[in-house]
Design a protein around this nucleic acid. Structure first.
Lengths: 221, 221
DNA sequence: TGTACATCAGTGAACGCGCGTTCACTGATGTAC
DNA sequence: TGTACATCAGTGAACGCGCGTTCACTGATGTAC
Protein backbone atom coordinates (compact mmCIF):
# COMPACT_ATOMS: atom_id res chain seq x y z
CA UNK A 1 0.00 0.00 0.00
CA UNK A 2 1.34 3.44 -0.97
CA UNK A 3 0.58 6.46 1.22
CA UNK A 4 -1.44 9.09 -0.59
CA UNK A 5 -0.11 12.60 -0.91
CA UNK A 6 -1.08 14.86 1.99
CA UNK A 7 -2.36 18.13 0.59
CA UNK A 8 -1.59 21.36 2.37
CA UNK A 9 -4.71 23.46 2.92
CA UNK A 10 -3.35 26.54 1.16
CA UNK A 11 -0.39 27.71 -0.87
CA UNK A 12 2.38 28.53 1.57
CA UNK A 13 4.29 31.16 -0.31
CA UNK A 14 1.42 33.36 -1.24
CA UNK A 15 0.01 36.00 1.06
CA UNK A 16 -3.64 34.98 1.23
CA UNK A 17 -5.88 37.66 -0.24
CA UNK A 18 -8.74 39.03 1.85
CA UNK A 19 -10.95 40.20 -0.96
CA UNK A 20 -12.19 38.52 -4.08
CA UNK A 21 -10.71 41.32 -6.13
CA UNK A 22 -7.14 40.54 -5.16
CA UNK A 23 -7.75 36.81 -5.53
CA UNK A 24 -8.36 37.58 -9.18
CA UNK A 25 -5.23 39.67 -9.37
CA UNK A 26 -3.27 36.73 -7.94
CA UNK A 27 -4.80 34.48 -10.57
CA UNK A 28 -3.91 36.89 -13.35
CA UNK A 29 -0.33 37.25 -12.10
CA UNK A 30 0.22 33.48 -12.03
CA UNK A 31 -1.34 33.06 -15.46
CA UNK A 32 0.77 35.91 -16.85
CA UNK A 33 3.93 34.27 -15.52
CA UNK A 34 3.03 30.90 -16.99
CA UNK A 35 2.20 32.53 -20.33
CA UNK A 36 5.54 34.33 -20.43
CA UNK A 37 7.40 31.11 -19.58
CA UNK A 38 6.07 29.64 -22.80
CA UNK A 39 8.81 31.32 -24.79
CA UNK A 40 11.47 32.47 -22.36
CA UNK A 41 13.25 31.40 -19.22
CA UNK A 42 12.29 32.52 -15.73
CA UNK A 43 15.38 34.73 -15.46
CA UNK A 44 14.47 36.47 -18.68
CA UNK A 45 11.03 37.39 -17.40
CA UNK A 46 10.96 40.64 -15.42
CA UNK A 47 8.61 41.41 -12.54
CA UNK A 48 7.42 44.53 -14.33
CA UNK A 49 6.70 42.40 -17.40
CA UNK A 50 4.60 39.93 -15.42
CA UNK A 51 2.67 42.77 -13.79
CA UNK A 52 2.05 44.52 -17.10
CA UNK A 53 0.75 41.37 -18.78
CA UNK A 54 -1.55 40.70 -15.82
CA UNK A 55 -2.91 44.24 -16.15
CA UNK A 56 -1.59 44.85 -12.64
CA UNK A 57 1.43 46.59 -11.12
CA UNK A 58 4.78 45.79 -9.55
CA UNK A 59 3.46 46.79 -6.13
CA UNK A 60 0.55 44.38 -6.39
CA UNK A 61 2.95 41.62 -7.30
CA UNK A 62 4.89 42.18 -4.10
CA UNK A 63 1.67 42.40 -2.11
CA UNK A 64 1.10 38.74 -3.03
CA UNK A 65 4.60 37.28 -3.31
CA UNK A 66 7.55 37.65 -0.96
CA UNK A 67 9.89 37.79 -3.93
CA UNK A 68 10.08 36.92 -7.61
CA UNK A 69 10.86 33.25 -7.01
CA UNK A 70 7.79 32.87 -4.78
CA UNK A 71 5.58 33.36 -7.84
CA UNK A 72 7.23 30.47 -9.67
CA UNK A 73 6.98 28.45 -6.48
CA UNK A 74 3.26 29.15 -6.19
CA UNK A 75 2.79 28.14 -9.81
CA UNK A 76 4.72 24.94 -9.25
CA UNK A 77 2.86 24.11 -6.04
CA UNK A 78 -0.45 24.61 -7.73
CA UNK A 79 0.67 22.42 -10.62
CA UNK A 80 1.79 19.70 -8.22
CA UNK A 81 -1.56 19.70 -6.44
CA UNK A 82 -3.31 19.17 -9.76
CA UNK A 83 -0.84 16.48 -10.70
CA UNK A 84 -1.27 14.55 -7.45
CA UNK A 85 -5.04 14.61 -7.80
CA UNK A 86 -4.81 13.51 -11.42
CA UNK A 87 -2.39 10.70 -10.58
CA UNK A 88 -4.62 9.45 -7.76
CA UNK A 89 -7.51 9.30 -10.15
CA UNK A 90 -5.84 8.11 -13.34
CA UNK A 91 -3.52 5.54 -11.79
CA UNK A 92 -5.82 4.06 -9.16
CA UNK A 93 -5.54 0.25 -9.26
CA UNK A 94 -9.34 -0.03 -9.29
CA UNK A 95 -9.53 1.94 -12.52
CA UNK A 96 -7.38 -0.57 -14.37
CA UNK A 97 -8.73 -3.78 -12.89
CA UNK A 98 -8.45 -6.53 -15.44
CA UNK A 99 -6.49 -4.37 -17.90
CA UNK A 100 -3.25 -5.60 -19.44
CA UNK A 101 0.00 -3.63 -19.51
CA UNK A 102 -0.49 -3.25 -23.24
CA UNK A 103 -3.64 -1.24 -22.50
CA UNK A 104 -2.36 0.79 -19.55
CA UNK A 105 0.88 2.03 -21.05
CA UNK A 106 -0.40 3.64 -24.29
CA UNK A 107 -3.13 5.50 -22.44
CA UNK A 108 -0.73 6.78 -19.80
CA UNK A 109 1.88 7.85 -22.30
CA UNK A 110 -0.63 9.64 -24.51
CA UNK A 111 -1.78 11.59 -21.47
CA UNK A 112 1.76 12.47 -20.37
CA UNK A 113 2.63 13.69 -23.86
CA UNK A 114 -0.39 15.98 -23.80
CA UNK A 115 0.43 17.41 -20.37
CA UNK A 116 4.04 18.05 -21.32
CA UNK A 117 2.94 19.79 -24.48
CA UNK A 118 0.34 21.95 -22.78
CA UNK A 119 2.60 23.11 -19.98
CA UNK A 120 6.01 22.96 -21.56
CA UNK A 121 6.96 26.43 -20.37
CA UNK A 122 6.38 25.52 -16.76
CA UNK A 123 8.18 22.18 -17.11
CA UNK A 124 11.19 23.91 -18.59
CA UNK A 125 11.31 26.69 -16.02
CA UNK A 126 10.97 24.32 -13.07
CA UNK A 127 13.59 21.99 -14.49
CA UNK A 128 16.09 24.80 -14.81
CA UNK A 129 15.23 26.28 -11.43
CA UNK A 130 15.64 22.89 -9.75
CA UNK A 131 19.27 22.81 -10.87
CA UNK A 132 20.19 25.51 -8.38
CA UNK A 133 17.29 25.56 -5.93
CA UNK A 134 16.94 22.64 -3.54
CA UNK A 135 13.37 23.58 -2.74
CA UNK A 136 12.24 23.15 -6.33
CA UNK A 137 14.31 20.03 -6.75
CA UNK A 138 12.64 18.40 -3.77
CA UNK A 139 9.12 19.25 -4.88
CA UNK A 140 9.90 18.07 -8.39
CA UNK A 141 11.37 14.78 -7.20
CA UNK A 142 8.54 14.14 -4.76
CA UNK A 143 5.98 14.43 -7.55
CA UNK A 144 8.09 12.39 -9.95
CA UNK A 145 8.51 9.60 -7.44
CA UNK A 146 4.82 9.67 -6.62
CA UNK A 147 3.80 9.18 -10.22
CA UNK A 148 6.54 6.63 -10.77
CA UNK A 149 5.47 4.61 -7.72
CA UNK A 150 1.88 4.40 -8.91
CA UNK A 151 2.78 3.35 -12.44
CA UNK A 152 5.29 0.83 -11.12
CA UNK A 153 2.64 -0.59 -8.79
CA UNK A 154 0.27 -1.13 -11.71
CA UNK A 155 3.01 -2.80 -13.73
CA UNK A 156 4.34 -4.88 -10.86
CA UNK A 157 0.87 -6.34 -10.24
CA UNK A 158 1.15 -7.66 -13.79
CA UNK A 159 4.73 -8.90 -13.67
CA UNK A 160 3.71 -12.16 -15.33
CA UNK A 161 3.35 -10.11 -18.54
CA UNK A 162 6.92 -8.81 -18.22
CA UNK A 163 9.85 -10.83 -19.51
CA UNK A 164 12.64 -8.45 -18.40
CA UNK A 165 14.71 -10.39 -15.80
CA UNK A 166 13.95 -7.91 -13.01
CA UNK A 167 10.46 -6.37 -13.37
CA UNK A 168 11.03 -3.87 -10.57
CA UNK A 169 14.14 -2.42 -12.15
CA UNK A 170 12.53 -2.56 -15.57
CA UNK A 171 9.47 -0.56 -14.53
CA UNK A 172 11.53 2.03 -12.72
CA UNK A 173 14.02 2.52 -15.52
CA UNK A 174 11.33 2.60 -18.18
CA UNK A 175 9.65 5.46 -16.33
CA UNK A 176 12.91 7.36 -16.01
CA UNK A 177 13.62 7.00 -19.68
CA UNK A 178 10.09 8.03 -20.52
CA UNK A 179 10.16 11.19 -18.44
CA UNK A 180 13.60 12.12 -19.76
CA UNK A 181 12.47 11.80 -23.35
CA UNK A 182 9.27 13.74 -22.75
CA UNK A 183 11.17 16.59 -21.15
CA UNK A 184 13.69 16.81 -23.98
CA UNK A 185 11.56 16.06 -27.01
CA UNK A 186 8.52 18.12 -26.06
CA UNK A 187 10.07 20.69 -23.74
CA UNK A 188 12.85 21.12 -26.27
CA UNK A 189 15.49 21.04 -23.61
CA UNK A 190 18.83 19.65 -24.69
CA UNK A 191 20.43 18.18 -27.74
CA UNK A 192 17.39 17.77 -29.94
CA UNK A 193 19.43 15.22 -31.75
CA UNK A 194 16.72 14.14 -34.14
CA UNK A 195 17.15 13.96 -37.88
CA UNK A 196 13.48 13.25 -38.57
CA UNK A 197 10.78 15.68 -37.39
CA UNK A 198 8.25 13.85 -35.21
CA UNK A 199 4.74 14.93 -34.30
CA UNK A 200 3.35 14.36 -30.82
CA UNK A 201 1.36 11.32 -31.94
CA UNK A 202 4.41 9.67 -33.39
CA UNK A 203 6.44 10.46 -30.28
CA UNK A 204 3.72 8.85 -28.20
CA UNK A 205 3.67 5.84 -30.51
CA UNK A 206 7.43 5.31 -30.42
CA UNK A 207 7.60 5.89 -26.67
CA UNK A 208 4.93 3.26 -26.20
CA UNK A 209 6.61 0.80 -28.51
CA UNK A 210 9.92 1.36 -26.74
CA UNK A 211 8.41 1.06 -23.28
CA UNK A 212 6.67 -2.22 -24.01
CA UNK A 213 9.62 -3.69 -25.90
CA UNK A 214 11.98 -2.93 -23.05
CA UNK A 215 9.70 -4.51 -20.44
CA UNK A 216 9.35 -7.43 -22.79
CA UNK A 217 5.58 -7.31 -23.10
CA UNK A 218 4.25 -9.49 -25.88
CA UNK A 219 2.42 -7.54 -28.58
CA UNK A 220 -1.18 -8.65 -28.15
CA UNK A 221 -2.81 -5.47 -29.45
CA UNK B 1 28.06 9.17 -47.90
CA UNK B 2 28.02 11.74 -45.06
CA UNK B 3 30.07 14.92 -45.30
CA UNK B 4 32.70 15.16 -42.57
CA UNK B 5 32.70 18.11 -40.24
CA UNK B 6 34.76 21.05 -41.49
CA UNK B 7 36.99 22.24 -38.66
CA UNK B 8 37.68 25.92 -38.27
CA UNK B 9 41.41 26.66 -37.94
CA UNK B 10 41.14 28.44 -34.60
CA UNK B 11 38.64 29.26 -31.89
CA UNK B 12 36.71 32.27 -33.11
CA UNK B 13 35.72 33.88 -29.87
CA UNK B 14 39.08 33.91 -28.20
CA UNK B 15 41.61 36.64 -28.79
CA UNK B 16 44.63 34.63 -29.95
CA UNK B 17 47.52 34.92 -27.49
CA UNK B 18 50.91 36.05 -28.78
CA UNK B 19 53.05 34.52 -26.09
CA UNK B 20 53.17 31.04 -24.60
CA UNK B 21 52.61 32.52 -21.18
CA UNK B 22 49.16 33.83 -21.99
CA UNK B 23 48.29 30.65 -23.84
CA UNK B 24 48.69 28.93 -20.50
CA UNK B 25 46.55 31.54 -18.80
CA UNK B 26 43.84 30.90 -21.37
CA UNK B 27 44.09 27.20 -20.67
CA UNK B 28 43.82 27.75 -16.93
CA UNK B 29 40.83 30.06 -17.32
CA UNK B 30 38.93 27.51 -19.41
CA UNK B 31 39.78 24.70 -17.02
CA UNK B 32 38.74 26.81 -14.03
CA UNK B 33 35.39 27.53 -15.65
CA UNK B 34 34.78 23.88 -16.43
CA UNK B 35 35.75 22.91 -12.88
CA UNK B 36 33.34 25.44 -11.40
CA UNK B 37 30.53 24.24 -13.66
CA UNK B 38 30.83 20.85 -11.99
CA UNK B 39 28.68 22.00 -9.09
CA UNK B 40 26.95 25.21 -10.12
CA UNK B 41 25.29 26.83 -13.11
CA UNK B 42 27.01 29.26 -15.46
CA UNK B 43 25.03 32.20 -14.08
CA UNK B 44 26.13 31.35 -10.56
CA UNK B 45 29.80 31.46 -11.53
CA UNK B 46 31.32 34.94 -11.32
CA UNK B 47 34.10 36.23 -13.55
CA UNK B 48 36.14 37.10 -10.46
CA UNK B 49 35.65 33.55 -9.23
CA UNK B 50 36.89 32.03 -12.49
CA UNK B 51 39.93 34.32 -12.47
CA UNK B 52 40.77 33.52 -8.86
CA UNK B 53 40.57 29.77 -9.40
CA UNK B 54 42.79 30.07 -12.49
CA UNK B 55 45.34 32.01 -10.40
CA UNK B 56 44.74 34.92 -12.78
CA UNK B 57 42.81 38.18 -12.68
CA UNK B 58 39.62 39.71 -14.01
CA UNK B 59 41.62 41.88 -16.40
CA UNK B 60 43.36 38.85 -17.89
CA UNK B 61 40.01 37.20 -18.39
CA UNK B 62 38.83 40.15 -20.48
CA UNK B 63 42.11 40.21 -22.38
CA UNK B 64 41.16 36.76 -23.73
CA UNK B 65 37.38 36.84 -23.91
CA UNK B 66 35.08 39.52 -25.27
CA UNK B 67 32.61 38.84 -22.46
CA UNK B 68 31.67 36.20 -19.93
CA UNK B 69 29.66 34.12 -22.39
CA UNK B 70 32.61 33.95 -24.77
CA UNK B 71 34.44 31.77 -22.27
CA UNK B 72 31.64 29.21 -22.19
CA UNK B 73 31.50 29.40 -25.97
CA UNK B 74 35.21 28.70 -26.25
CA UNK B 75 34.84 25.74 -23.90
CA UNK B 76 31.93 24.41 -25.92
CA UNK B 77 33.72 24.91 -29.23
CA UNK B 78 36.75 23.07 -27.97
CA UNK B 79 34.55 20.26 -26.68
CA UNK B 80 32.79 20.01 -30.03
CA UNK B 81 36.09 19.74 -31.87
CA UNK B 82 37.12 16.85 -29.68
CA UNK B 83 33.71 15.24 -30.08
CA UNK B 84 33.78 15.46 -33.89
CA UNK B 85 37.22 13.91 -34.01
CA UNK B 86 36.17 11.16 -31.62
CA UNK B 87 32.99 10.43 -33.57
CA UNK B 88 34.92 10.25 -36.86
CA UNK B 89 37.25 7.72 -35.31
CA UNK B 90 34.88 5.69 -33.15
CA UNK B 91 31.96 5.50 -35.56
CA UNK B 92 33.84 4.99 -38.83
CA UNK B 93 32.14 2.21 -40.82
CA UNK B 94 35.53 0.56 -41.39
CA UNK B 95 36.06 0.16 -37.69
CA UNK B 96 32.92 -1.94 -37.28
CA UNK B 97 33.15 -4.00 -40.45
CA UNK B 98 31.54 -7.36 -39.80
CA UNK B 99 30.27 -6.37 -36.35
CA UNK B 100 26.65 -6.93 -35.38
CA UNK B 101 24.39 -4.30 -33.83
CA UNK B 102 24.54 -6.27 -30.60
CA UNK B 103 28.26 -5.54 -30.48
CA UNK B 104 28.20 -1.90 -31.65
CA UNK B 105 25.50 -0.62 -29.32
CA UNK B 106 26.90 -1.70 -25.93
CA UNK B 107 30.33 -0.30 -26.75
CA UNK B 108 28.91 3.03 -27.93
CA UNK B 109 26.60 3.40 -24.97
CA UNK B 110 29.33 2.59 -22.46
CA UNK B 111 31.46 5.28 -24.02
CA UNK B 112 28.68 7.86 -24.02
CA UNK B 113 27.92 7.17 -20.37
CA UNK B 114 31.57 7.78 -19.51
CA UNK B 115 31.75 11.05 -21.45
CA UNK B 116 28.55 12.35 -19.89
CA UNK B 117 29.85 11.48 -16.45
CA UNK B 118 33.24 13.07 -16.97
CA UNK B 119 31.90 16.32 -18.36
CA UNK B 120 28.52 16.59 -16.74
CA UNK B 121 29.09 20.18 -15.68
CA UNK B 122 29.73 21.29 -19.23
CA UNK B 123 26.78 19.29 -20.57
CA UNK B 124 24.48 20.89 -18.03
CA UNK B 125 25.72 24.41 -18.59
CA UNK B 126 25.50 24.17 -22.37
CA UNK B 127 22.04 22.62 -22.19
CA UNK B 128 20.75 25.48 -20.06
CA UNK B 129 22.51 28.13 -22.14
CA UNK B 130 21.06 26.69 -25.33
CA UNK B 131 17.56 27.38 -24.03
CA UNK B 132 18.03 31.12 -24.47
CA UNK B 133 21.03 31.44 -26.80
CA UNK B 134 20.52 30.43 -30.42
CA UNK B 135 24.26 30.27 -30.99
CA UNK B 136 24.70 27.52 -28.41
CA UNK B 137 21.58 25.74 -29.56
CA UNK B 138 22.86 25.56 -33.11
CA UNK B 139 26.29 24.26 -32.14
CA UNK B 140 24.71 21.72 -29.82
CA UNK B 141 22.27 20.48 -32.45
CA UNK B 142 24.91 20.31 -35.14
CA UNK B 143 27.04 18.02 -33.00
CA UNK B 144 24.06 15.96 -31.89
CA UNK B 145 22.92 15.43 -35.45
CA UNK B 146 26.44 14.55 -36.55
CA UNK B 147 26.77 11.80 -33.96
CA UNK B 148 23.22 10.63 -34.59
CA UNK B 149 23.82 10.43 -38.35
CA UNK B 150 26.89 8.25 -37.92
CA UNK B 151 25.27 5.86 -35.49
CA UNK B 152 22.17 5.65 -37.67
CA UNK B 153 24.36 4.89 -40.68
CA UNK B 154 25.99 1.98 -38.86
CA UNK B 155 22.61 0.65 -37.80
CA UNK B 156 20.95 1.17 -41.16
CA UNK B 157 23.66 -0.84 -42.88
CA UNK B 158 22.50 -3.70 -40.66
CA UNK B 159 18.75 -3.22 -41.00
CA UNK B 160 18.29 -6.95 -41.57
CA UNK B 161 19.01 -7.34 -37.84
CA UNK B 162 16.24 -4.85 -36.96
CA UNK B 163 12.62 -5.99 -36.67
CA UNK B 164 11.09 -2.56 -35.93
CA UNK B 165 8.78 -1.80 -38.90
CA UNK B 166 10.73 1.32 -39.92
CA UNK B 167 14.47 0.96 -39.20
CA UNK B 168 15.20 4.61 -40.02
CA UNK B 169 12.69 5.95 -37.56
CA UNK B 170 13.72 3.38 -35.00
CA UNK B 171 17.40 4.27 -35.11
CA UNK B 172 16.70 7.98 -34.94
CA UNK B 173 14.25 7.71 -32.07
CA UNK B 174 16.44 5.29 -30.14
CA UNK B 175 19.26 7.83 -30.28
CA UNK B 176 17.02 10.65 -29.11
CA UNK B 177 15.81 8.60 -26.20
CA UNK B 178 19.34 7.58 -25.36
CA UNK B 179 20.70 11.12 -25.31
CA UNK B 180 17.72 12.36 -23.30
CA UNK B 181 18.22 9.72 -20.64
CA UNK B 182 21.96 10.29 -20.46
CA UNK B 183 21.46 14.01 -19.95
CA UNK B 184 18.88 13.56 -17.22
CA UNK B 185 20.21 10.52 -15.39
CA UNK B 186 23.88 11.45 -15.41
CA UNK B 187 23.70 15.21 -15.72
CA UNK B 188 20.99 15.16 -13.07
CA UNK B 189 18.86 17.58 -15.00
CA UNK B 190 15.15 17.16 -14.50
CA UNK B 191 12.75 15.01 -12.59
CA UNK B 192 15.11 12.33 -11.34
CA UNK B 193 12.08 10.19 -11.03
CA UNK B 194 13.91 7.05 -9.97
CA UNK B 195 12.99 5.02 -6.93
CA UNK B 196 16.03 2.74 -7.18
CA UNK B 197 19.56 4.22 -7.16
CA UNK B 198 21.45 3.10 -10.25
CA UNK B 199 25.20 3.10 -10.83
CA UNK B 200 26.68 4.07 -14.17
CA UNK B 201 27.23 0.45 -15.17
CA UNK B 202 23.64 -0.43 -14.52
CA UNK B 203 22.44 2.64 -16.39
CA UNK B 204 24.58 1.57 -19.34
CA UNK B 205 23.24 -1.97 -19.09
CA UNK B 206 19.58 -0.91 -19.02
CA UNK B 207 20.09 1.66 -21.77
CA UNK B 208 21.63 -1.03 -23.93
CA UNK B 209 18.89 -3.50 -23.17
CA UNK B 210 16.24 -0.88 -23.94
CA UNK B 211 17.94 0.26 -27.15
CA UNK B 212 18.22 -3.25 -28.55
CA UNK B 213 14.75 -4.29 -27.46
CA UNK B 214 13.20 -1.26 -29.14
CA UNK B 215 15.02 -1.86 -32.40
CA UNK B 216 13.99 -5.46 -32.13
CA UNK B 217 17.45 -6.95 -32.26
CA UNK B 218 17.49 -10.60 -31.34
CA UNK B 219 19.60 -11.31 -28.23
CA UNK B 220 22.54 -13.25 -29.62
CA UNK B 221 25.08 -12.22 -26.99
C1' DT C 1 77.01 41.94 -24.70
C1' DG C 2 74.40 45.82 -23.34
C1' DT C 3 70.94 49.40 -23.57
C1' DA C 4 66.52 51.43 -25.23
C1' DC C 5 62.13 50.84 -26.80
C1' DA C 6 57.84 48.54 -28.19
C1' DT C 7 54.55 45.29 -27.36
C1' DC C 8 52.34 41.92 -24.71
C1' DA C 9 50.53 40.14 -20.22
C1' DG C 10 48.71 40.93 -15.82
C1' DT C 11 46.36 43.50 -11.91
C1' DG C 12 42.30 44.93 -9.11
C1' DA C 13 39.89 49.00 -7.67
C1' DA C 14 36.24 51.71 -9.52
C1' DC C 15 32.42 52.17 -12.55
C1' DG C 16 27.73 51.63 -14.10
C1' DC C 17 23.82 49.11 -15.84
C1' DG C 18 19.83 46.23 -15.14
C1' DC C 19 16.42 44.62 -12.47
C1' DG C 20 14.45 43.15 -8.12
C1' DT C 21 12.52 45.49 -4.28
C1' DT C 22 10.61 49.24 -1.47
C1' DC C 23 7.53 52.83 -0.07
C1' DA C 24 4.70 56.91 0.20
C1' DC C 25 0.51 57.76 -1.66
C1' DT C 26 -4.32 57.15 -3.93
C1' DG C 27 -8.43 54.61 -4.52
C1' DA C 28 -11.85 50.90 -3.25
C1' DT C 29 -14.38 47.98 -0.07
C1' DG C 30 -16.37 46.76 4.10
C1' DT C 31 -18.24 47.81 8.79
C1' DA C 32 -19.92 50.20 12.95
C1' DC C 33 -23.43 53.19 14.95
C1' DT D 1 -30.12 55.29 5.03
C1' DG D 2 -26.12 57.93 5.85
C1' DT D 3 -21.61 59.14 7.60
C1' DA D 4 -16.99 58.06 9.54
C1' DC D 5 -13.36 55.13 9.93
C1' DA D 6 -10.42 51.06 9.25
C1' DT D 7 -8.48 47.93 6.34
C1' DC D 8 -7.39 46.11 1.99
C1' DA D 9 -5.84 46.68 -2.92
C1' DG D 10 -3.35 49.07 -6.29
C1' DT D 11 0.26 52.29 -8.31
C1' DG D 12 4.85 53.40 -10.27
C1' DA D 13 8.77 56.32 -9.44
C1' DA D 14 12.93 55.90 -6.86
C1' DC D 15 16.24 53.11 -4.61
C1' DG D 16 20.16 50.07 -4.19
C1' DC D 17 22.61 45.76 -4.67
C1' DG D 18 25.27 42.53 -7.35
C1' DC D 19 28.12 41.55 -10.85
C1' DG D 20 29.91 42.17 -15.48
C1' DT D 21 33.03 45.33 -17.54
C1' DT D 22 36.52 48.96 -17.94
C1' DC D 23 40.85 51.25 -17.44
C1' DA D 24 45.01 53.37 -15.71
C1' DC D 25 48.97 51.37 -14.22
C1' DT D 26 52.90 47.82 -13.28
C1' DG D 27 55.67 44.09 -14.72
C1' DA D 28 57.57 40.79 -18.29
C1' DT D 29 59.21 39.52 -22.81
C1' DG D 30 61.08 40.24 -27.15
C1' DT D 31 63.76 43.01 -30.60
C1' DA D 32 66.72 46.54 -32.80
C1' DC D 33 71.26 48.65 -33.08
Amino acid sequence: VIATHSRSPQLEWVRPPRQGRSQQTLERLLQALEDLLEDKGFDDVGVAEIARRARSSVGSFYARFADKTAALRALHERFCEEAYATADDALAPARWQGATIARIVPATIAFLVRVHRERRGLFRAVTVQALSDADFKEREQKLGRYVNERVCALLHARSDEISHPDPRIAADFAMRQLSATLLLEIGEIGWAVGLIPFGDEQIAAELTCSFLAYLGVRDSD
